[in-house]
Simulated assay, not measured.
Amino acid sequence: MKIDGYTRLAAVVARPIRHSLSPMIHNAAFEATAVNGVYVAWDIAETDLQATLENVRRYDMFGINLSMPYKSAVIPYLDELSPEAALIGAVNTVVNSGGKLIGHNTDGQGFLVSLGEYSVAGQEMAIIGAGGAGLAIIAQAALNGARAIHVFSRQQSVTKVSRSLEPIVAQTGVELTVTALNESEELQRLLKQSSLLVNSSSLGMDGHSYPLPAEVQLPANLLVADIIYHPFETPLLKRAKSEGLPTINGLGMLLHQAALAFELWTGKAMPVDLIWPQLEEVVKTRT
């Protein structure tokens, strides 16, 4: 990688962030595309967030990515929001367009791209959890024409989740239901209507916890996806795979949301086929 007086900077901003794989992904992309850029990780306090955004302009950076806890906190310091970022009230990518800072959210679209040939348009889907990443997936699926989205949530969170999804329903008109995870019969009925099941919760990250009641069956022809990529195969994916169902873990979402950000910054496509095996190897060695 060549660094000179014309090198531009990009960064991921969060707390904590030292564990992030984003520097590996983006620096590989800069090198492969011959874009003169460098990507670093910044662990900053929230009190420094405004100054960080000012520095994006000051130093003519490509922009920044954001992770927790700053995806919503950054919004007051931006000049404009993309439709999906405005819809969910969260930003994971800031683009410096000639000094104008535009907030995007590539999480939802990155996930949908990771599904390959599968399209949510006209389909019913189910999703476990509606936190940051889950909300982005729900919003993007609605924007992409999903016929119905069934959200499975903890019983104590059903009312809160329902309220958080009201703007998506109002803007897109999507049919959206919220069901408590302890309502096994209703979960089973909604799964039978769905062609896609997504786990966007943290259940399974420990390698042991299973996000659905054990008695709920996974219907035939259901595509099962998990946004977790460490471990590489969660208990949900293991069960689905053992029953002959197609499965997708969260590594594709990680890569494709980064690819969308890279293209927003540089105008060039990230060579995901080149970076994928490198990323897969890094993740597997951490497992």
Results as ranks from 00 to 15, higher is better:
T106F: 03
I127F: 03
H150G: 02
N144K: 05
G129C: 07
A136D: 00
A130N: 07
A29K: 00
L245P: 05
A126V: 10
L255P: 02
T172V: 14
I149K: 01
V161S: 03
M270I: 13
S67F: 05
S97Q: 15
I3L: 13
H104Q: 11
A220L: 10
D226F: 11
N199D: 09
L255A: 07
T266I: 04
Q171M: 10
D107S: 06
N96T: 08
A220T: 13
T266Q: 01
S67E: 07
P231S: 13
A126M: 15
K71T: 06
V158Y: 05
S97L: 15
D43F: 05
V12C: 02
D43P: 03
L115P: 03
K160F: 11
Y77M: 04
G131M: 01
L223G: 07
A126Y: 04
A130T: 09
A214M: 11
E117I: 08
G108F: 06
D43N: 14
S97I: 08
R239C: 04
T7E: 11
G99W: 11
P277S: 12
P211D: 09
F232M: 11
V40H: 04
V282L: 15
N36M: 11
G207T: 12
I248P: 00
A139F: 09
G250Y: 02
V120Q: 06
H104N: 15
R154D: 05
R18D: 09
L49A: 00
M24L: 15
S184W: 08
N92E: 01
V161K: 01
E263I: 05
Y6R: 13
D43W: 05
A214I: 11
A261T: 04
T47C: 09
L9V: 14
Q140V: 12
E215I: 13
V40E: 05
R8C: 07
F111M: 05
A85V: 07
S20T: 13
F111C: 04
V216C: 11
F152V: 04
L181W: 05
I88E: 06
L101V: 11
V174G: 01
G116E: 12
T106Y: 02
K160G: 08
S72G: 15
A225V: 10
N249T: 03
D107T: 07
K160H: 15
L260T: 00
L53D: 01
D273A: 14
M61L: 12
S194T: 11
Q155R: 15
L236C: 07
L237N: 02
G108I: 09
V38L: 14
A170R: 14
D273K: 15
R189S: 12
D206S: 10
I138N: 00
G267Q: 12
A258R: 00
L196N: 04
L115Q: 11
